[in-house]
């Protein structure tokens, strides 16, 4: 089974040359994330410049662009993980369901409970498979063993790894292969039932076969979750995403339906990147 979205042709949409302010068809889902005039500095480096983007429910949005274009920084701003880097400053706003998450009074823990994240390198904890999945529910106060058992099973099934690990739930997660580890990390993320899943180049450390499985998984997850995925791999973006945003030097150059971006880009720089002329 292959991804459907790239095959399915979408209604032609009018292209507004101004990045980010692309007009949605009426039928689209509700906006979950809305970024307005976001600027971000690492000490002196201006890493994100006037970013305007919005993401809708139950869609897969891919963020593409060459290394150092700010795509990873941007996705980490969406759950404020970027703050772990000392010396970060931001202006502008990002609203999540109408609330500005960059506001100091906004509780990051609450945000990160609703917005899960999958990282570049699989990063399971050096604990058992079971404990990895139960970690999230446990820190949020769920201690009932029966409930936890159920969550663990459901999450592992959700990430399509249950059959591979059900007989060794108590073994260390480091015994799994890289691809399995990454699916475990996705399962761990599902355990707290987030509304949005951020994926920061989730397949860059994996072999092609594992990559394919993750891509299939993303297609499944889309039915329940909104997914924002940063990727280095343009074919991947084309295969799995509904919409694509192209970043260059900290700016959003173009944001549109994936089909349009890949077949009929509005900006010559997007075309250059997609046709492999740089990056």
């Amino acid at each position: 089974m292959m991804s459907q979205s790239s095959v399915k042709s979408k209604r032609p949409v009018k292209i507004n040359p101004e990045a980010g302010s692309f007009k949605e068809p009426e039928t689209a889902g509700k906006v979950v994330y809305d970024t307005k005039e976001l600027n971000l500095w690492y000490s002196e480096t201006h890493a994100l410049k006037d970013v305007n983007l919005s993401f809708r429910e139950k869609e897969v949005t891919a963020i593409i662009g060459p290394s150092g274009c700010g795509k990873s920084t941007y996705i980490k701003t969406l759950n404020r993980m970027v703050e772990l880097v000392p010396g970060v400053r931001t202006t502008g706003e990002i609203t999540y369901k109408g609330k500005n998450i960059l506001d100091r009074s906004f509780k990051v823990e609450e945000l990160r409970t609703k917005v899960g994240m999958v990282f570049q390198k699989p990063n399971p904890f050096p604990k058992s498979i079971y404990e990895n999945i139960a970690y999230g529910p446990k820190i949020h106060g769920i201690r009932n063993k029966k409930v936890l058992d159920e969550i663990v099973e459901r999450s592992l099934r959700g990430a399509y790894i249950w059959d591979e690990v059900k007989d060794r739930l108590n073994e260390n997660a480091y015994g799994l292969s890289g691809g399995q580890q990454q699916r475990l990390c996705i399962a761990r993320c599902l355990a707290i039932e987030p509304e949005v899943i951020l994926m920061d180049e989730p397949t860059s450390a994996l072999d092609p076969k594992s990559t394919l499985r993750i891509e299939e998984l993303v297609q499944e997850l889309k039915k329940e979750y909104s997914i924002i995925i940063v990727t280095h791999n343009m074919q991947q973006a084309a295969r799995i995403s509904d919409k694509t945003a192209f970043f260059l030097n900290g700016e959003v150059i173009e944001f549109n339906e994936t089909n349009t971006i890949f077949t009929n880009p509005a900006d010559s720089r997007t075309e250059d990147y997609i046709s492999g002329r740089f990056g």
Partner: peptide, 27 residues
Amino acid sequence: VPKYLAEASFGMGATKWQTIKNVILPA
């Protein structure tokens, strides 16, 4: 202790102390 372990914990909404107690110290 690798940074990515702490990131995984923060990413799930764990607080700083929860991350220290459950991830960084055990490791």
